[in-house]
Computed example of a mutant assay.
Amino acid sequence: MIEEQFRARLFAVSGLRQEAEQEVRATSALLSVLQVVRPLSKRLLGPLGASLSESAEVLAWTEVPFETADGEGLRPDGIVTVRSRGRSFTALIEVKTGTSRLGCLLN
């Protein structure tokens, strides 16, 4: 399980000035809302394969470092998991604010 320190929060404690910090705050706010507003998480994540069950549990984290199977280190902006009846759906989230460009996380 991912440590509590990475849990998405509506009011993130990141700085306010730098563009990277804006992305952390935006990601945290979006993912924290997805955890509690089930109609929104169903609408955004359902088409990607997440459970549409009302009783599904949505969990989200920001800036979680991990390694791929081949040892490459990654730190996506966010991770969201939807669990229901023994099934689990997990997605890596990349957020861009301002004029930042979206790049490829995995090759």
Rank of each mutant, 00 (worst) to 15 (best):
T90W: 07
V82C: 00
F89C: 07
E3Y: 09
E19V: 14
E94D: 13
G15S: 08
R43M: 05
A20F: 08
A29I: 00
A12P: 04
N107P: 15
F6L: 06
L92D: 04
E23V: 11
L92K: 07
V33L: 13
I93E: 02
R85T: 00
D77H: 11
E67F: 14
V64W: 10
V33R: 12
T68I: 01
K96W: 01
L59P: 10
R75I: 02
L45W: 06
A56M: 14
V58E: 02
L34H: 07
V95R: 06
R87L: 03
E19T: 11
L74W: 04
W61H: 15
A60D: 08
T62L: 08
R43S: 10
S53A: 15
R38F: 06
L106P: 02
A20G: 09
L30Y: 06
L52M: 12
L74D: 02
A69Y: 13
S28R: 08
A12N: 13
L48H: 10
G71Q: 08
L105M: 05
R85L: 01
E21R: 14
M1V: 12
A26P: 02
V58W: 05
A50T: 09
S32T: 06
R38K: 15
S51K: 13
S55L: 08
R9F: 01
S14T: 04
R9K: 14
R85A: 09
A50R: 12
E4P: 07
S51E: 02
E54A: 14
K96D: 00
R38D: 03
R9T: 12
S55C: 08
V82E: 00
E54S: 15
G46C: 03
R87S: 08
E19R: 15
L52W: 07
S88F: 00
A60R: 11
R87F: 01
L59T: 03
E67C: 11
D77R: 08
G86M: 02
A56N: 07
L74V: 04
E72A: 05
S84I: 00
R7T: 10
L52T: 10
Q22A: 03
L44T: 05
E63H: 11
R83S: 08
E57Q: 12
E4Y: 14
V36C: 13
E21P: 03
R38P: 07
G86I: 03
A12W: 03
A12G: 09
S100D: 00
L45C: 09
L59A: 13
E4L: 14
Q22L: 07
V64G: 14
A12L: 01
